[in-house]
């Protein structure tokens, strides 16, 4: 649920990176943190185990040039991917405005991808949300590894709804597909916000991508 503060001229959105364990959700945030203008982001905070597995979430605020006259903040979160942390994933999903589903392209991880996607749908339903109306994109990560499924197969497994969502092949460690996915989900979130809150449709203009 986005938050508008008219006094501070500020709009806040929440974007959650979701996906199975070790698919690269934290890596996405680390790369964004490294490549984005330091003035446009806050610190990257991780609540992780000693083995650097996400225990609760990673968090990083971004400031974007998105809505005229308002400071637009995108709060990026990741969830812990490990199956046992489902309660934590539900907590992090509260008030979500957009999701980047990060899938691991390796054949051996396909079942985990499918299970995690189903888990996302289930957890969203518990808070009265559905992927039919929630802005989301898919990122097929680790395309540089040798034993990966073709993109069309991943589309068949994960992107087979009535409306095909935007999807991005990615190598998060190098930044490939990272900003493409972030920009697309942010744009979708903004457009949904405009549709809901702008009474004057002529005020909506096209937003160019990075």
């Amino acid at each position: 649920m986005s938050f508008v503060n008219f006094k501070k001229r500020e709009v806040q959105f929440k974007i959650v990176y979701y996906g199975p364990g070790l698919c690269g959700k934290t890596t996405n945030l680390q790369v964004i943190h490294r490549l984005i203008n330091p003035e446009a982001r806050g610190d990257l905070t991780s609540i992780a185990t000693a083995g650097e597995r996400t225990l609760f979430f990673d968090f990083m605020p971004l400031v974007a040039q998105a809505i005229e006259g308002y400071q637009t903040r995108f709060q990026l979160y990741t969830v812990p991917g490990q199956v046992m942390y489902n309660l934590t994933r539900r907590l992090v999903l509260r008030g979500v405005d957009g999701v980047v589903f990060v899938a691991d392209s390796q054949w051996s991880k396909m079942q985990e991808n499918v299970e995690s996607f189903a888990n996302l749908e289930e957890n969203l339903q518990l808070q009265g949300e559905t992927l039919q109306t929630l802005p989301h994109v898919l990122q097929y990560n680790k395309r540089d590894l040798p034993d990966v499924a073709p993109v069309h197969y991943m589309e068949f497994m994960l992107n087979h709804g009535a409306v095909r969502q935007s999807s991005f092949p990615a190598v998060a460690t190098t930044g490939e597909g990272v900003f493409e996915a972030l920009n697309m989900v942010a744009r979708q979130v903004l457009h949904k916000f405009m549709i809901v809150h702008s009474r004057k449709e002529e005020g909506v203009r096209e937003l160019a991508l990075v």
Partner: peptide
Amino acid sequence: PVGDTEDSRPFVLSTETQLFSLRK
């Protein structure tokens, strides 16, 4: 609801070409 108060002005998306500015 928003849109029905004195604070309301229509939200307008920025025409900036870059949503997020990257490090130079």
